[in-house]
Amino acid sequence: MEIDSIDMRNYRCVEKQDGAYIVAVMVEDSYYLQGSFCAILIVGIYLALASCCMVYMLSKVMKEKDEKEKFRYKSNTDELTRCYNRRAYEEDINKLDLTKEWVYISMDLNGLKNANDSFGHAAGDELICAAADCMKNSFSEHGKVYRVGGDEFVVIITKDILQFENILSTFDQRVAGWHGEFVESMTVSYGYVYSSERKWKSIFDISKASDERMYESKKQYYTRIGIDRRR
């Protein structure tokens, strides 16, 4: 619609053609549009900053969580064998429920002292790591493997208890089939106890009984091969 005359005080932008005004933008409308644009711009900047802050905080939380998990893994893992260490063992052993069925296995390498004396500590480390690998490959799917001393290990089986004899047989086969760079072969003495064997007073009684059976197995091994047990 053409307008013949307008009040110039109320308009910011006008254009005239053939004596009539064809474009007129009111000052109030112009200010309103500018204000809306500024408001949208401010909101956009705020949302962008808020998003950046959220991303930063999320990445910080994830980094802290990752660092905590790494610290926990390192503090609970034996450096040489990558088995769980004694600290993890002490934590987990107190969580075991005597009313549930599980198996406690005490394990000890045979001939470690002889390997160290004859071939050096590299041979001893080879034996320890090889035994640990056999244990992890055989038992990790069914429980946890802990290195609690130099050549002393504990395995706690909490899954597939009915298949335990087969699981143990698999471990025996792995040990028998191992051959190393420094040492030709290895043997491992062990004793184990079912939590369901009888009504135990404490978990300590189970670990003690398992150790006694392991030492009896070790005694029989050294008697059989005719070597001093201390070696």
Rank of each mutant, 00 (worst) to 15 (best):
D151K: 09
D172R: 13
A115W: 02
V145L: 03
F119V: 00
N94S: 15
K113L: 05
I128G: 13
L109T: 09
D97L: 05
V175F: 02
G124R: 10
E181C: 11
I206S: 11
S140K: 04
I161E: 01
V145R: 06
E152K: 12
G143S: 01
M107V: 10
V154L: 02
D211R: 04
L98Q: 03
Y89T: 02
G120L: 02
L112V: 05
F139V: 07
F204A: 15
N114P: 13
I157T: 14
M107I: 08
R198L: 08
G124L: 04
A209T: 14
D133F: 06
K199E: 07
Y194N: 14
V145F: 05
M186K: 04
V145A: 05
H179M: 04
E181Y: 07
I128N: 12
F204S: 15
H121Y: 12
F204W: 07
D211Q: 03
V145K: 05
I93V: 15
E91F: 06
S169P: 03
Q173L: 08
Y89F: 13
D211I: 03
R147W: 01
F164N: 08
T170Q: 15
E165K: 15
E101W: 00
A209C: 15
K159V: 00
M107G: 15
E91A: 13
E184Y: 03
S210F: 06
A115S: 13
N94M: 11
Y104I: 06
A176D: 03
N166L: 11
V103N: 05
N114I: 09
F171S: 02
D205G: 12
D108W: 02
F119K: 14
V145Y: 03
D151A: 10
D211A: 08
R198Y: 00
L168D: 04
K136G: 05
D133K: 15
K113A: 11
N166E: 11
E165N: 15
F182G: 12
R174W: 00
L162P: 04
D133P: 02
L127W: 00
V103S: 06
N110W: 00
A130C: 03
V193Q: 12
G177I: 02
E126M: 09
S106K: 11
R174E: 00
I161V: 02
Q173F: 01
I206W: 01
Y194G: 14
T158I: 11
N116F: 05
V183G: 10
G150T: 13
E90M: 13
F171W: 02
S118M: 05
S202Y: 02
D205H: 14
I167S: 06
V103L: 05
F182E: 02
E126H: 09
